[in-house]
């Protein structure tokens, strides 16, 4: 028998970096700077626990949106990566 369950915020866990939803204008600028298309970006699934957490803040996040991830990097301190949301 377990004790009371509580809801956890996965974003607080050490292993999970900061996830942010970027706006469509920012998306355009990003793709322009990188000189590439959305399909070339690394992906993240719609039902990823971090995305589900973001949805509680921003509302539903459709596939095709881009997430900005700020990682704590062992080599450079701070590192910014992007992932494009895909279907489950």
């Amino acid at each position: 028998m377990v004790s009371k369950m509580r809801k956890i915020n996965v974003m607080e866990h050490e292993l999970v970096p900061e996830h942010h939803l970027i706006s469509e204008e920012e998306e355009k600028k990003l793709l322009q700077d990188l000189g590439t298309e959305k399909e070339s970006l690394p992906k993240i699934k719609r039902n990823d626990p971090a995305i589900k957490m973001l949805e509680r803040i921003y509302g539903p996040i459709r596939p095709g949106r881009v997430i900005k991830i700020i990682r704590k990097s062992p080599t450079s301190g701070k590192y910014i990566a992007y992932r494009v949301v895909t279907e489950e």
């Binding site: 990188l34 070339s40 690394p42 990097s73 080599t75 450079s76 590192y79 910014i80 990566a81």
Partner: peptide, 21 residues
Amino acid sequence: DNDGIVIDTTDNIIQFKYGED
């Protein structure tokens, strides 16, 4: 040669900067 991005044969971006630094 674009800022240290790492890609594969289909130009997928695997890392935005090699080794993050």
